[in-house]
């Protein structure tokens, strides 16, 4: 056998790129192999916006809530797309990984485990789009979505807003999922988080129809910036200076937490990895 020892002390973009390509392909393979399951999952993500369109269109019948029926349809349709694209399930997953010992192989590699998770997450989103996009189109047609505010400019502005939202939500929830190394029931935290997205993020209703206190609070928290902001950008409701303020809010909310991620990892996240599951065995 031959040998040439690679130098792991220097980051190698080439190797990382290769890794991403391979891992992404693997994750894609998985999601395609289980496309039936992806389809069911997508069906699940269609349900909430679908129900909410009905609810809010009913509310707006013969009453002025500040938005028309068509605008509600458009809002929840885009909300579905944004929610799908920003979805991350690692609070559940980490709990499972630690319990089942699945973390060990990931921690044995000389690559940070977040890269693996990014690939998995992205591939799920892309495969899911195959279902989400037709569902969105159908939803828009059936419920008469009104996109009069949207334009090619708002669509262009939407792209960075969505990407930043994806990164923001991924980093925050991935870091919170790390709590699984200390706590056993992170999934409960996840439930609370879902509720925050529902109200502070604007998944339940456009923030404009929410009570004042929710609107005010939402400015200071990341949920608005990962769901509501991109939706409104896409619909052409946020332009000019507000747009740039929003772009600014997205990464600033993230960077602080991003630092936590790398710190925690460097200081000892993986070292505690199997301990919990192991401690259970020794009980």
């Amino acid at each position: 056998m031959s040998s040439s020892t690679p130098d792991f002390s220097k980051p190698s973009p080439r190797a990382l790129l290769q890794f991403y390509r391979g891992q992404f392909a693997a994750a894609l393979g998985f999601n395609l192999a289980y496309r039936g399951m992806v389809a069911l999952w997508v069906l699940g993500s269609v349900m909430q916006p679908l129900v909410l369109i009905v609810v809010w269109q009913t509310v707006s019948e013969g009453r002025d809530t500040g938005m028309t029926a068509g605008q509600y349809a458009a809002y929840f349709m885009v909300s579905m797309v944004v929610s799908h694209m920003t979805f991350i399930w690692h609070m559940w997953e980490f709990e499972w990984r630690i319990r089942s010992g699945y973390f060990s192989p990931l921690l044995l590699r000389p690559v940070h485990p977040i890269h693996h998770d990014i690939c998995e997450n992205l591939s799920y989103k892309f495969v899911g789009l195959v279902g989400i996009i037709p569902a969105a189109v159908l939803m828009a047609l059936i419920f008469g979505a009104d996109f009069s505010g949207a334009s090619w400019r708002s669509l262009i502005a939407f792209a960075p807003a969505l990407l930043l939202a994806m990164a923001l939500r991924f980093v925050i929830e991935w870091c919170l999922a790390l709590a699984a190394f200390w706590m056993t029931k992170v999934a409960s935290l996840n439930q609370l988080f879902d509720a925050f997205f529902l109200f502070l993020g604007g998944q339940f209703a456009p923030l404009g129809v929410m009570p004042e206190w929710i609107q005010t609070l939402s400015f200071a928290l990341p949920f608005r910036w990962s769901i509501y902001f991109p939706i409104q950008v896409a619909l052409g409701n946020i332009t000019g200076a507000d747009l740039w303020i929003g772009y600014g809010m997205q990464p600033s909310d993230r960077s602080g937490r991003g630092r936590v991620a790398t710190d925690v990892e460097a200081r000892g996240l993986p070292t505690t990895a199997v301990e919990r599951s192991h401690a259970c065995l020794h009980r």
Binding site: A27, L40, W89, W92
Partner: peptide, 19 residues
Amino acid sequence: MPSPLKIAPTFASAYRTGP
């Protein structure tokens, strides 16, 4: 290779375990 698809059921059963 988990993804939400695989996790959810395992999670559900994990939820039933414990004291």
